[in-house]
């Protein structure tokens, strides 16, 4: 009864694929349609733009899986940015008022799972390898941007959510998700973000971004996501 060998060939297979031309196009369209966002939700727009550039670079480097994930994320960010801009349209297009007290924006409904309040602000989701909480190069690149964004938005408090794909036990995945959230938090602290602005929570395999059972779906679910709990 041997069940030992996990061959490297399986990993190589996952790396193949084709350039996600369609998704890149969709992301670009979403960005060009988000003209209002450029004015009214500039941080969000910038994040979407950066993600799109990253997707292109990844595609150029033939990292198609990561490129696809990034293109998808860029599209999502662009749509979100536009939605946010629409919501802010009135105040944004009228002359600026004096700065308000940041506590006005405190969302005190708490970071409950069941609630899941707050979006990712201008922060990029960070992705992980299978059964790993090590930061890959692309994760570090995303983190550098996240660090910048947090520095530029010094009142923002976020919760870092650790997530896993659905393979493996429920309980182990909670532990693994926490490890991912912690690694992400430590890295942001090392980039100079104050630690009291960074909460963590692990959802294990409970909150997939993609309910599919494909290699790609698993890849999208192994992540640390950011939720702004206070602006």
């Amino acid at each position: 009864m041997r069940f030992l060998i996990v061959s490297a060939s399986a990993l190589l297979l996952f790396a193949c694929g084709t350039r996600p031309t369609q998704l890149l196009g969709e992301a670009q369209n979403a960005l060009s349609e988000a003209a209002l966002a450029k004015k009214c939700a500039p941080d969000e727009f910038e994040a979407a733009e950066k993600m799109y550039i990253k997707a292109q670079k990844l595609a150029d480097a033939e990292k198609y899986d990561e490129a696809e994930a990034a293109a998808r994320a860029a599209k999502k960010l662009a749509i979100k940015a536009q939605a946010k801009a629409q919501a802010r349209k009135d105040e944004c297009l009228t002359p600026p008022k004096p700065a308000t007290d940041p506590t006005d924006f405190i969302d005190d409904s708490g970071p409950g799972v069941d609630a899941q309040d707050g979006d990712g602000g201008g922060m990029e989701t960070v992705y992980f390898e299978y059964n790993s909480s090590d930061l890959t190069d692309s994760a570090r690149a995303a983190m550098a941007q996240n660090g910048d964004w947090l520095q530029r938005n010094p009142t923002v408090v976020v919760t870092i959510e650790g997530h896993c794909d659905k393979r493996g036990s429920t309980e182990y995945n909670l532990a693994l998700g926490e490890k991912r959230a912690k690694v992400t938090r430590s890295y942001l602290i090392s980039l100079g973000v104050e630690k009291n602005r960074l909460g963590i929570v692990s959802y294990g395999e409970e909150q997939p971004m993609d309910y599919g059972d494909t290699t790609k779906a698993h890849g999208r679910n192994r992540r640390a996501e950011f939720r702004v709990v206070r602006r």
């Binding site: 708490g110 970071p111 409950g112 799972v113 069941d114 909670l174 692990s202």
Partner: peptide, 9 residues
């Protein structure tokens, strides 16, 4: 049992 009703596990 483990529950997230208070926000964490």
């Amino acid at each position: 049992f483990t529950s997230f009703r208070n926000g964490g596990a």
